[in-house]
Design a protein around this nucleic acid. Sequence first.
DNA 1: GTGGTCTAGACCACA
DNA 2: GTGGTCTAGACCACA
Lengths: 143, 143, 143, 143
Amino acid sequence: MLEGINVRSRVAVYLQVENHVQFAIAAGKLKEGDQLPSVRELSERLGVNPNTIAKSYRDLEVMGLLYTRRGMGVFINKGVQAKCKEECNRKIFSKMYEVVSEAKASGVSKKDLQEIFNSSYSLADDPYGDPPKEILKLAAAKK
Amino acid sequence: MLEGINVRSRVAVYLQVENHVQFAIAAGKLKEGDQLPSVRELSERLGVNPNTIAKSYRDLEVMGLLYTRRGMGVFINKGVQAKCKEECNRKIFSKMYEVVSEAKASGVSKKDLQEIFNSSYSLADDPYGDPPKEILKLAAAKK
Amino acid sequence: MLEGINVRSRVAVYLQVENHVQFAIAAGKLKEGDQLPSVRELSERLGVNPNTIAKSYRDLEVMGLLYTRRGMGVFINKGVQAKCKEECNRKIFSKMYEVVSEAKASGVSKKDLQEIFNSSYSLADDPYGDPPKEILKLAAAKK
Amino acid sequence: MLEGINVRSRVAVYLQVENHVQFAIAAGKLKEGDQLPSVRELSERLGVNPNTIAKSYRDLEVMGLLYTRRGMGVFINKGVQAKCKEECNRKIFSKMYEVVSEAKASGVSKKDLQEIFNSSYSLADDPYGDPPKEILKLAAAKK
DNA sequence: GTGGTCTAGACCACA
DNA sequence: GTGGTCTAGACCACA
């Protein structure tokens, strides 16, 4: 749980945590009633300040995905998988739309783009790690 | 030229302008010797601070894509299309990799993702505008 | 007795228990000499830590509403109904004042507010349970 | 704008700010495009730490009520009045339901409760100030 | 032990 | 000037 967070990524840690939790709920890896790691535990594991994690959890609570039992911990709310799936889909659609629009705007052909999509899919692993070197080589070759 | 900039986007305006110019060069829409709108004109059109545009142009000049003729305006350098294509490809690969990784992490099947890719491609138009409503409807339906 | 406690509420469990007992005394449902469920029994029934219930009982004892007979259990003191009524009235006034002030601040008309009051009264049942669905539908309709 | 915040209230300052903004949007006092006071300005005016205000604004952004233009400030989103009205109504319903349920649970008659409602309405002013003394006197008398 | 709230203050990105 | 992110650390409420 939550092991893909990359403190050196340009994406803020608190946002990575939020996304990670949303993805995991959407994918059914986190289910109603599951307890998240405590603020202190997770912050120690990731080597970040507890406030950073607290911020993620607070935001996720505002979104209605978590609830807090004071002194007990933080838990996944009920009925959130559908909501998360929808929200994740929305995000994926938006991002896909963005990258495809950019590709079109820079004159990439659909065929090339489809190839980029395919190689990305086979290599895809960790959303916040740097993209694997293979993919950057493909990009360079593709001139 | 440069009409898709969205001041309400979380992407900084100056970055949107830089990307926009790079895309246009890569796609051959902006060619060696073409003149860009003046800082003042563009800043007024977009309703942003002139410093913002000035920063974009300065960055693009540092990258070697533009040159300035004092009192005359800002112009596209020669031999920049290949360089821009390469750079754009790199960006597109990275983003595609990110969105595909996120989709995987949230449990979206390859088939669904391919569909998302296809609809995005047919609808794709403006990288920074809000995605068209059609696409959000598709996202909602896709639960 | 004490069946309306909601562990997922933001109101602390120990406070809910205290309020519940006070309400019941004020309403005459708990009378002088009545025995309360044991700390262990109640904590198991509600799925909370026994310390939580112990704290409620301790507080209620400090307020003079309960007394403990070691080895026997916890009982309602005598002459507490009037005191509880007064205290409950104070709480109700304060809360009513707060909700009405908020309603005014958000532009709700007196007429609408009176309606909200009426429907609440007809539906009112469990102070800490989620409000019944009917009421939320009314709220949504009331735009 | 935002002058009713009470630093000495038991309600957290950041929550008061959030509620205040939601009420003001619902009531039409804050409209699409309106700029909120800057984090620094408001924090100085209220005598609290800038982080406290930043937290409110962040939450309101997560809720979709605000958007941020980096370096420019924080603005009211479009199409939020309906959403806020609904949300405020929901809150008011829930609170009214809670207080009425409590009143019922403690044996207050509908007639008395209606009176409490009426006096609250005439006195209602500031949601976070202490209730006016008049109302507490009424409560005491009402035994 | 758990999370909530808040302060003080740094450093960054952006306009 | 604006907000964003994060650290360090205090003190509180709760279980």
